[in-house]
């Protein structure tokens, strides 16, 4: 019984551990070496899914801290990724509060809203308050592929949730 409880706790912290690891390690979801325009913001998919399905798995404070770490590693001004992730959390929580039952299609559509809001804030703050320049084509590709890959990761995370954590949909 105790063993099950430890395992269950471990499965519950899996998503947040993955988020921390993605932010701090050199592992990137940027597959430019394979296909030049293929870039993906995996972190926001991860955050959005778990905020929608199991918000207790994705604690706000941890997401904030992971954002700060991501800024340090990537060389962005501190706080900008946290802000972007918190916008994702905000939209996710709002959608969760407003909806009774969600499907992959509805999650996909609301994820688009969350991603657009979050990226507008992220790039407009960087553009106006820092010296960094970004190619708009890259931002477009990044958003497109993140949106495109969302259903695939949705299915994977859903499988993880059903098999290891247990279903408790909104």
């Amino acid at each position: 019984m105790a063993k099950n409880s430890i395992l269950s706790k471990f499965y519950n912290i899996g998503p947040i551990l993955l988020l921390y690891y993605l932010c701090i390690s050199e592992i990137d979801t940027n597959l430019e070496k394979v296909f030049e325009i293929f870039t993906l913001n995996f972190q926001i998919i991860l955050i959005y899914f778990w905020v929608l399905k199991r918000p207790e798995v994705m604690a706000n404070g941890h997401v904030f801290l992971a954002g700060l770490i991501n800024d340090v590693v990537m060389g962005f001004p501190l706080g900008i990724s946290s802000l972007s992730y918190l916008i994702i959390i905000f939209v996710g929580t709002y959608v969760r509060n407003k909806s009774v039952n969600t499907t992959i299609a509805s999650d996909w559509f609301t994820f688009l809203m969350a991603m657009v809001l979050s990226n507008i804030l992220f790039f407009s703050l960087l553009n106006n308050f820092s010296d960094l320049t970004f190619p708009f084509s890259k931002i477009g590709y990044n958003m497109f592929f993140t949106l495109f890959m969302f259903p695939i990761f949705w299915l994977l995370f859903n499988f993880y949730q059903l098999m290891l954590i247990g279903n408790r949909d909104a």
Partner: peptide, 20 residues
């Protein structure tokens, strides 16, 4: 599990961003 509200963390992130 949510010890901090989103609004308070957004404010904190903005403060850190402008300080930086």
């Amino acid at each position: 599990a949510q010890k901090f509200s989103v609004l308070s963390l957004i404010f904190l992130a903005l403060i850190i961003f402008f300080l930086d």
